[in-house]
Design a protein around this nucleic acid. Structure first.
Length: 647
RNA sequence: GGGUCCGUAGCCUAGUCAGGAUCAAGGCGCUGGCCUUCGGAGCCGGAGAGCAGGGGUUCAAAUCCCCUCGGACCCGCCA
């Protein structure tokens, strides 16, 4: 029999058995759901129920006695995956699996479902949009942001394996001050040669331009306030000092570029105004601005795409933010919002009263907020008539919901408030179901020890750098361990291993927790890493290349504890997968893959497969190896990591 | 000041949402073994925490509630 969830079948057997038994013993008592848990020790079986603690308390009978009654009532013959039911502790009912049957079902199922094994389909397939990465097209992707594409891509793969129809969208954030800054800087430097990727070049221009503008602004402001020795002045001075020191570093590193940029910019009078004019013109869709800004965004984006394609991350749709500004979607939304009671004018500025929406619709507790917490208002329109990021995100969200039932925004933790305001805006507009189906998948950042990366300050390690280093280090490892392979093969392997290591390091940690960047952490080849799992896979494949093809293994011959362990882990993969997909937990797949690799290596070391005697045992073990290799590969693929045949 | 999140061995991480078993799980590092013909990026063993601290709820708390402490993030006419 082929099952897409062998452990789930075992669980169902246990539930049936317990339910029937309780019905027999206590016909009048109704049970809502019977609690089960996976025991920590092998001697306690494969699944245990704590249902009798509760019942015992209600009936004022020792739970242990009840458990014994239950165990006595159950006849395991009626449940194919059940071998024995025992009682332990203060009243646990322990269910022991019939391994001959469980092994057979599991191994048969894995081998026949192959790439589909474990990826149990949902009953309610949805059209989903996973929006991720969505980096500003003004600088290269940094390692600080790198969890976003890696987690976003893993989520998309997992949800798609779950049977949802998933589209991956990249929101190109081309509207806003930052693109005006880089476009302006770029426009002053037409013919400078730069070897390297365009996003790296533009990132540098962005930093240098920001630096000059910022220093300038702070100096002017200090000049204006020079008579008052207030706290504000001190603050300004402090900021200026920071920028001056940043400038010093940049000037030293990029002398000629900095010099020519400074020369050009100093000819212009009011830099602040130039930037905000350019921003406004772009938002209005004026040709001059379009020419300048689109050009730099496209250049940057080409570089970003190149980076992403290196790590095998692709998108179905590139959605330009400016589209929504230019096609009147933004103005329609603003008009609709103005018709609600939640928008008010504050001088020239338009504000959205998010707090009131939450109060009126009783949403605060749903949003996890205290009733007396006041949600800050959101500025929709600036004094100069331009809109803000979150404002434009409202029509974009509506646009996404025309194409999907549910939208998952993979966005940094620091944007919690704007993401919440965005949802509240949808509620205010009457789109409550859309608001409910808008999910902010919040993740923490990768930080450098001691400080946060900042592209404005030019303080970042690019993802390109890390990828390159990862591949380089992987090559050295391959060279060390498999010097006999051809150069071509070594290169191919080192890509798979290096990128795998990087992805795994960022995917394995709970997304909500920060990751502190160190090279050794992000490029790790030892246990608890992608290379370790990949190595286990390669070992399994190596056995399979040498072994004869097994048709009908007799899995009941697998009787050693480690063989049972391995079967059990394989059997559990579908439940791990379902939990990971339903609760958006890519890291649990990473964790699982590592556990499976661990068990496999123990097995590998303890028992021979090919040369086991008799032949039937060897066949059964080879089938187990094959099943393991399939599940290792399936799990790795879900987090975007390739399982190599050799390494 | 207000809000959200995090705090598990020297270090990194799982377990916390859906509370359970007198060894709290892995990895790094430390340490003692294993070159057993299927790949040593490996395997087997040892030492090392009682889950930030304190109260409470419960038959049962790392897990739930409250308080305190420490750290991160947010409270922009930035994104």
């Amino acid at each position: 029999m082929v099952s897409n969830n062998p452990f789930g079948d075992f669980r169902a057997n246990c539930e049936e058995a317990l339910e029937q038994s309780l019905k027999k013993l206590y016909p009048s008592t109704r049970f809502k759901s019977l609690p089960f848990e996976v025991p920590l020790k092998k001697e306690f079986g494969e699944l245990a129920s704590t249902a009798l603690f509760d019942l015992g308390k209600n009936l004022k009978i020792d739970p242990r006695q009840l458990a014994q009654q239950v165990a006595d009532t159950i006849s395991v013959e009626e449940h194919p995956l059940l071998r024995a039911v025992t009682v332990a502790g203060g009243g646990y009912v322990n269910f022991h699996a019939a391994f001959d049957e469980l092994s057979r079902t599991t191994i048969d199922s894995v081998r026949s479902l192959d790439a589909e094994y474990g990826h149990v389909k949902t009953d309610r397939p949805l059209k989903l949009i996973v929006e991720h990465t969505s980096a500003n097209p003004i600088s290269p992707l940094s390692i600080g942001q790198a969890r976003n594409p890696i987690l976003g891509d893993a989520l998309a793969r997992i949800l798609s394996a779950r049977g949802h129809h998933v589209n991956r969208h990249f929101y190109v954030d081309d509207v806003g001050r930052q693109t005006a800054v880089v476009a302006y800087g770029h426009s002053k430097l037409q013919d400078i040669a730069f070897d390297g990727k365009p996003d790296h070049y533009l990132g540098l221009i962005y930093t240098l331009t920001s630096c000059i503008i910022e220093t300038n602004r702070l100096k002017q402001e200090l000049e204006r306030n020079k008579d008052s020795a207030s706290e504000a002045t001190q603050q300004l001075q402090k900021q200026l000092d920071e920028w001056v020191s940043i400038t010093a570093v940049l000037e030293r590193k990029h002398r000629s570029l900095f010099k020519s940029l400074l020369q050009s910019l100093s000819k212009d009078q009011n830099l602040e105004k130039i930037i905000s004019d350019l921003n406004r013109e772009y938002e209005l869709g004026e040709e001059r601005a379009k020419k300048l800004i689109r050009r730099v965004c496209e250049l940057s984006l080409a570089g970003i795409k190149e980076t992403l394609s290196k790590i095998d991350i692709t998108f179905d749709s590139w959605d330009w933010e400016s589209t929504f500004a230019w096609n009147s979607d933004v103005s329609k939304v603003l008009k609709a919002l103005k018709d609600t009671e939640y928008v008010y004018q504050e001088g020239p500025v338009l504000e959205f009263d998010a707090d009131r929406v939450a109060d009126n619709l009783g949403l605060k507790s749903k949003l996890g907020l205290g009733e007396d917490y006041e949600i800050p208002s959101l500025t929709l329109v600036r004094a100069d008539g331009t809109t803000l990021y979150t404002t434009r995100d409202i029509p974009y969200s509506l646009w996404k919901f025309k194409r999907a039932d549910k939208v998952i925004n993979v966005v940094g933790l620091e944007q919690r408030l704007p993401q919440m305001q965005l949802r509240l805006a949808l509620w205010a507009l009457g789109h409550s179901s859309k608001a409910k189906n808008l999910v902010h998948f919040a993740h923490n950042l990768v930080t450098l020890p001691g400080y946060k990366m900042s592209s404005r300050r030019g303080r970042y390690i690019t993802l390109d750098q890390v990828v390159e280093e990862a591949i380089k280090r992987a090559y050295e490892e391959v060279e060390k361990r498999s010097p006999q392979r051809s150069m071509k093969e070594k290169t191919a392997i080192s890509k798979i291993v290096g990128i795998g290591a990087l992805k795994y390091a960022l995917a394995e940690v709970d997304p909500i927790k920060p990751v502190v960047f160190t090279w050794d952490r992000v490029i790790n080849f030892e246990r608890n890493s992608a290379p370790y799992i990949q190595y286990s896979y390669a070992r399994a494949r190596s056995i399979l290349r040498k072994a004869e093809k097994v048709e009908k293994p007799n899995c009941a011959l697998l009787v050693k504890p480690i063989e049972h362990d391995l079967v059990l882990i394989l059997a559990r993969y579908p439940e791990v997968f379902i939990d990971s997909a339903e609760n958006l937990k890519p890291n649990s797949i990473a964790e699982y893959a590592n556990l499976l690799a661990d068990k496999f290596n123990t097995f590998y070391n303890a028992l021979p497969a090919i040369r086991a005697k008799p032949k039937e045992l060897s066949e059964a073990r080879v089938a187990l190896v094959e099943a393991t290799s399939i599940v290792l590969r399936n799990a790795l693929n879900l987090i975007g990591i390739i399982a190599p045949e050799r390494m």
